[in-house]
Design a protein around this nucleic acid. Structure first.
Lengths: 471, 471
DNA sequence: GGGTATTTGTCCGTATGTATG
DNA sequence: TCATACATACGGACAAATACC
């Protein structure tokens, strides 16, 4: 039979198995599932509904005991004919939807950061967390190594190697609480005197952090392949901060040729480095992922920066960097003074999450979730061809929208706001005083909104932008 | 392919199928099973490993879903090539020589850092941890406030107020992963140009961190009341780093008079600050605790630094600082750029730990534990009056031992080592090149040793030090 | 060369242990 | 103590490919 689409409510106080049981019973009573039909196996059903098999088992067992279905061992469950069964109509009392009134100005926020609200793998995380805390290993609560737990770094280097093509040993990895912190640490390692080139527009938070530390942040132009290496060369920068896998905010994926050019720029001098922020590399919707820049680096000039903020949750604060050999030596002199900033417990949890393959399964799940949202938004926006076109759609969890009907970025943002929708102009990601990026565009992040919200938000957005009268 | 020799551990808490899965995955990742190779059939494997077929099935299924292997129906499972990822030579990191050998030379380690091995409140922590993760609050996994969770800061400010006499609102608190990090952040706030005075001897790690950041660290002498304010004045320092509640390593508690003098030094200029590291304030064995320096500060010149490293566990990495108003403004401009470095989950757990009164109960328990150890060691050392006398015994979890029989610090350390006991000479806590502190002494930390171990260690120590023949 | 036994992945229902409230 | 939910592990049945007589 077809897949049953049962809407389960985890938060409801009604047990899951009962919700399943009731739904199937109704289907049978209504004749929507005819007698003789085979029900989906408990495995299939549990996979569909994202619940444990035994939950489905319980539901089936109840149906069985009440004679709605019969079990044929090694084959499956089959719907009985209802003859002779008296059944009363049972009306579910309507539950009032408890809507939380939001005082927020915005009904929908196309935030470019953040994760899917239902995306956190609670169950596994809870389980691993419990396991780790149950070991009662006295060592676990003494201070750990400054670089991070050896076991965690090993699991991480395995993952980075096969999933991202990063070429490193666990010894090169430094674990830290967030990219900001790692940049801070890096700044200490580099003796605080770097001139850092960033693309324009870029991930300003990092730029402002670097400026706050006292770095010279230099804005370098970009074309459709990413940072312009010629300009970089002229800029006199020592360090280039790039996001080859998915540049923020443009969504540009740096092609191989440009990567090589960048690497040869770095190889030209001893004190040149590339900081590769492997932003959003986990989510790609087209083609195969390009391995990290770091994997092609033979001169030891690439510092690879990665995080679990996007792939798991921003709030768990686990990032990591891979240092080239030269910097590693400096780290061992100076960096080692600074204690690790991630809880040893959290590191252990993350290690198990990686080793148990949960991370990959989680990524696969999230990829599917984001793909659905991505496709929905892309479809909707492509229908609005009179108004806009889309770029940066190959990867990540946001789209870049350019207007073809003469609407300015500012106006698009204002109109959306007028309809209670928050969108983000790309201009806000230019470093201050750097107006070299001329394109106007709006960013639509779809990670934090649920599918049905996206649908409604897209409706409202279309209306707001289609409206011809000026606001 | 050949039979895989997987050593299964039935007793381990790790599921069988996961052990199988992990083993095979690692073999594939390391290339020990080449791409295209056929895995043993589930039957053969299950016979070999003496487990059920479906257990093997589960393991294979997981490998399948993650793309490590592919299934050819009625033929077998075959290892996939890790397609799409460039394959570079992956050097197997040679296993490092067990460093433990050096640490195992010591039977007993009177380490001055670390906590009681049985001291971590596993049960409550597990319970709260579970509760926090069970709430399934989607907000909890989005990025939190840079300063730390408002609720946590509120609980913290309450605690600091009544337990330490710290005078602050939650808005002044900045949460961070460890004192080192907070110093780093502070350095950014202070524009990286500070001349910092530290006592001598002192907590060198902090000193070296500050130096690595580029601070001028100036050593200032001390007497039995702590830092000499006259010298501080002459030194030209902007910032004084002190530990009034229990100076490390001397154990000196700064009396009120000296505190006031210090405060008036700071009040003399706009850019002068005192960093009050409230080290070990939680554990006092005599008299009532002196409130924090910060509570007496009317000029807004004290930065209060606290941590749960000693009171709960070093590895959980939760520290905090209280900024005076002037710095708070700067923080709101520059510091706010840096995301918080403590996991939001951990903050929530800690908040509950505070609010539920568990922290105080825990402290009481630990105070009793440490008091017992303290009294034991103090008693034993006082019996050795021919050899040494003790100082710094009012608070903390270590004692300072001065020798009265002419034994040098170096010799005391060596003799102890000869008996397999690790003790720490106080000289190692002088900043390099600063030899102004003339006293020789040895530190005995008793937090990480259990009572019975302490007993035996004290025996051995007495013998080693009593022994009159030179070593 | 055609039939048969074996091997294989796949799918199934079931039983048990454990965490949690 | 009991209800709920989940994870783990078990072994039987099936159909297609394959090896063997």
């Amino acid at each position: 039979m077809q897949e049953l689409a049962i809407s389960l409510n985890t938060k409801s106080h009604k047990p899951l198995y009962e919700q399943i049981y009731q739904h199937i019973r109704e289907e049978i009573q209504n004749g929507r599932i005819p007698a003789g039909e085979k029900l989906p196996s408990s495995r299939r059903m549990s996979a569909n509904l994202q619940v444990s098999r035994s939950t489905v088992d319980l539901a089936y067992e109840q149906l069985l005991s009440e004679g709605y279905i019969e079990s044929v061992p090694y084959k499956g469950y089959y719907v009985c004919s209802l003859e002779g069964l008296c059944h009363m109509e049972f009306k579910e009392p309507e539950k009032k939807e408890r809507r939380q009134s939001r005082e927020e100005r915005y009904r929908y926020d196309f935030a470019v950061s953040g994760i899917d609200p239902d995306g956190f793998p609670y169950n596994i995380w809870r389980k691993i967390s419990r396991e780790v805390l149950s070991e009662e290993d006295p060592q676990l609560f003494q201070l750990g190594e400054p670089q991070g737990e050896p076991g965690f770094r090993e699991a991480l280097s395995d993952y980075l190697h096969y999933a991202r093509g990063v070429n490193c040993t666990p010894e090169q990895i430094v674990v830290g609480a967030g990219n900001d912190y790692l940049l801070l640490l890096l700044h200490v390692l580099m003796n605080g005197s770097s001139r850092i080139a960033m693309e324009n527009p870029t991930y300003c938070t990092a730029g402002h952090c670097l400026e706050a530390m006292g770095c010279d942040v230099i804005s370098v132009g970009m074309d459709e392949s990413g940072m312009l290496v010629e300009e970089l060369e002229k800029s006199g920068a020592d360090v280039a901060y790039v996001m080859p896998s998915h540049q923020f905010p443009t969504g540009i994926v740096m092609p191989l040729r440009r990567r090589m050019k960048l690497l040869s720029w770095a190889a030209k001098a001893e004190d040149r480095y590339i900081i590769e922020d492997d932003y959003d590399s986990e989510f790609r919707y087209k083609g195969k992922p390009i391995p990290a820049l770091q994997g092609f680096d033979t001169a030891g000039r690439v510092i690879y920066l990665g995080t679990f903020s996007k792939s798991i949750a921003p709030s768990i604060r686990i990032s990591y960097m891979v240092l080239p050999m030269g910097l590693l030596e400096i780290y061992r002199r100076k960096g080692i003074l600074f204690s690790v900033t991630v809880s040893r417990v959290d590191q252990k949890i993350m290690e198990e999450f990686l080793r148990g393959g949960h991370f990959e399964r989680h990524l696969n799940r999230m990829r599917a979730v984001y793909k659905a949202k991505h496709d929905l938004m892309l479809g909707r926006l492509r229908k609005m061809e009179k108004i806009c076109r889309v770029s940066g759609e190959q990867a990540g969890v946001h789209l870049v929208v350019h207007f073809v009907n003469g609407m300015t970025e500012q106006e698009a943002v204002r109109r959306a706001a007028g309809s209670g929708i928050r969108v983000y102009g790309i201009s806000r990601y230019r470093m201050e005083g750097q107006k070299r990026y001329e394109g106007e565009a709006v960013l639509l992040g779809y990670s934090t909104l649920r599918l049905d919200e996206l649908e409604r938000a897209a409706d409202a957005l279309e209306q707001a932008w289609s409206d011809n009268k000026k606001v």
